[in-house]
Design a protein around this nucleic acid. Sequence first.
DNA 1: GTGGTCAAGTGGCTGAACCACTTTGCGGCG
DNA 2: CGCCGCAAAGTGGTTCAGCCACTTGACCAC
Lengths: 239, 239
Amino acid sequence: MSDALRPMSRSRLYEQVLERLRDHVIEGKLRAGDKLPPERELAQRLGVSRASVKQAIVVLEVQGFVEVRHGGGTYLVRDSLDLEPVGRLVERRRRLPDVLEARETLETRLAALAAERRSEDDIKAMDAALRLMAEEIAAGEPGAEGDRLFHASVTAAARSSLLEEFMHVIAEQITESRNESLRQPGRPNRSLAQHQRILDAIAAGDPKAAAAAMRKHVQTVAKVRLLSWDPEDAGITDD
Amino acid sequence: MSDALRPMSRSRLYEQVLERLRDHVIEGKLRAGDKLPPERELAQRLGVSRASVKQAIVVLEVQGFVEVRHGGGTYLVRDSLDLEPVGRLVERRRRLPDVLEARETLETRLAALAAERRSEDDIKAMDAALRLMAEEIAAGEPGAEGDRLFHASVTAAARSSLLEEFMHVIAEQITESRNESLRQPGRPNRSLAQHQRILDAIAAGDPKAAAAAMRKHVQTVAKVRLLSWDPEDAGITDD
DNA sequence: GTGGTCAAGTGGCTGAACCACTTTGCGGCG
DNA sequence: CGCCGCAAAGTGGTTCAGCCACTTGACCAC
C-alpha cells in the first residue's frame, strides 16, 4: 500500500471558489435576496477564470442556495451557503411534530374564521394566489410562492392579529415543510386541488367545511414531512 | 387561468446535457465503475462546448453520481444518474437500523479476530490507512478514503472470508453512513482518534479491547446516521 | 403618462489553447 | 524472455477572448 505518499488530493478550483463564496456571504453579511457580485468581478477578484466561477455557481444553483437570472445577476436564496450543522438538524427534527401540530390547530381555526369574515377582496387574493400557483406548476416549478400566498391570504382573511402572530412564529418551519412536500412527484397539482376546495368552502361561507378541508390539507403535508408518506393515502385527496 | 403566458422556465444547457447523460447511461446499460466517454467526445457528440459538459459533470460529481479522475477519465459511482424515488428513500431509511446493527455485529467480531490473527503487514496497512486519513483531513477533506481503507484492512486482517463476504453485502450502505458521518463538523478528527484506538488494541493483540473500541466507533457513526446524534455523548469519544 | 428605443450590465456559451496527470506501449537492457 | 523506463497518447483542469441573449433603467417621442 503505497498510498501513504500519494499526491495530496488537490481540490478542484471550483471547490475553493465555493469556499470563498461561503466566506464572502458570511463576512459580507449577505442575506436571502441579496445580489452576488457579477461573475466577471468574482473571477477577477478571486484570480480565476469565469468558467471556474461558473462551475461553483452551478453547484450552488443545483443545491438551491442561489437563483441565477440570465442577464439579471445571481441572488442568494438563503442567508447562508453552508449546509446545516447536525445539531440544528436534529433539534429541528425533534420539534417537527410540535410545529406540525401547531400548524394544524392554527390553520384549521384560521380557515373557519376566514369563512365567516372574508371580504370579496380576500376571495380575490386567494384566487389570485391559486392562479399564480397554477402558473408556476404549468411552468414546471413546485408552486411554492403561490402556495405561500394562498395561506397568507387565508390568514389575512381571518382577521385575527393574534393567531396571525402565532403563524409568523412557525412560518420558517412551515416554509420548509411546504418546499419538501411540493418536491414530491404529483404533489403540486394535488396541493392545488386541496387549496381550491378550501377556497370554495371559504367563499361559500361554510366554516365547518373550510376547517375540514384545511385540516385534510395540512395533515397531508405533515405526512410527507414526517417521511411516513403513503401514496395510497395521499392519493385520495386528488380531485 | 391565464397561465399560458409568463413564467417560462428556460432550461440551461448544462441541464439538457445532464438529461442526455442520464439517458446515455440507461441506454448504454452502463453500471457502477464504468467509464463515461471523454469530455471532448461528449462535447462533440452533443454539439456543445466542453465547458457546458463540464458544468453538467460537476453537478453529477457533487451529487455523488460520478468520480472524476484527473487525467484518468470520469467513472460512474452508481448504476444510474437518477435521483432516488421517494419510495426507495423511505424504504432504505426503514432498513437502516438493521444495516447498522449488522455492521456493529460484524465489525466488532472482525476487530477481535484481527487482534488475534493480524500479521505485521496488516498492522502496516492499517497504519498506512490512518496516515492517509490524517493527510486527507489535513487537506480539508472528510477522510473517507482513509476511513474506508482502514476498515478494509481490519477486515482483511481478520482472515475470515465469510464475514468479509457479509461485509460486502452491506458495503454500499456503510459507505453512505460513513460519508454522512464524516461530513459533520469535527467528526473526521474524532473518527481518526477512534480508529487509532482500534489499531492500538489490534496491534497489542487484545481482542477484547479491539472489539470494545470498534463497537464504540460503529455506534457513534450509527447515531449520526439515525439522526439521534447527541453531541454530549459523541463528545466523550474525543481524544 | 405611455410606449418605444437604446445602452449598459450581466449571465450563457463557445473554441482554441495550454497545463497536469494517467495510461499505454514500445524499445532497450539485463 | 521479461521487466524497467520513458516517451507519447489520452483525458481532465483551467484559462482567455469573444460574442450572444436577456434584463434593467434611462431617456425620448408621442
